[in-house]
């Protein structure tokens, strides 16, 4: 694993106002999400495409899982949890394959977005994944590059987080699948 690249990714993601957490085991992933959710007084989460075990653990912890279709409960998603396929170090960007509508909504309609990323999948620059993008784009596809939380500077150029999408973005680096 290229530690320099991970460090760069961390720095750039943090520059873009994302919060970075390195989780050693599956347990620590759940613990971290639970901790943040409790801190914010959240009770509901959506985790499209995530392993059943992670959802079960959160449910055991007392949180309610919102199932598909998320659009029917759009206003209720406190936390959205999804996986990223790649990270791009030089901009701190997450690449999320979002063919699934619920993945799009979990990353857009939640107040806080948790995105899990395997550090082995961090590349240096966007052109390093152009082959993968080309393969994806050969089929019907919806892909998102996500860098930091949603933002706007449309009023007096003052940067404000949480425009239409999440106000907080937590990136969890984890090797566990």
């Amino acid at each position: 694993m290229n530690n320099e690249r991970i460090e760069l990714f961390k720095k750039m993601a943090e520059d873009a106002s994302a919060i970075l957490y390195i989780a050693d085991t599956e347990n620590t992933v759940v613990e971290y999400i639970e901790k943040i959710m409790k801190l914010n007084g959240y009770s509901r989460f959506a985790a499209p495409g995530m392993p059943a075990a992670l959802c079960r653990n959160l449910e055991t912890g007392g949180f309610e899982k919102i199932g598909s279709p998320l659009r029917d409960r759009a206003g209720e998603i406190d936390a959205g949890i999804v996986n990223a396929s790649f990270g791009i170090a030089e901009t701190g960007t997450l690449v999320v394959n979002s063919d699934n509508e619920d993945i799009r909504l979990a990353t857009m309609l939640s107040e806080t977005n948790f995105i899990l990323l395997n550090p082995e999948n961090i590349v240096e620059k966007s052109s390093d994944i152009s082959n993968e993008l080309n393969t994806w784009f050969k089929k019907n596809n919806y892909t998102a590059f996500i860098t930091g939380p949603s933002r706007t500077a449309d009023i007096e150029r003052v940067l404000t987080l949480g425009a239409h999408g999440p106000e907080h973005l937590h990136i969890i680096l984890t090797n566990n699948k």
Partner: peptide, 8 residues
């Protein structure tokens, strides 16, 4: 450096 979202 980059915007928050690029949608493809």
């Amino acid at each position: 450096k980059i915007t928050s979202y690029i949608t493809w």
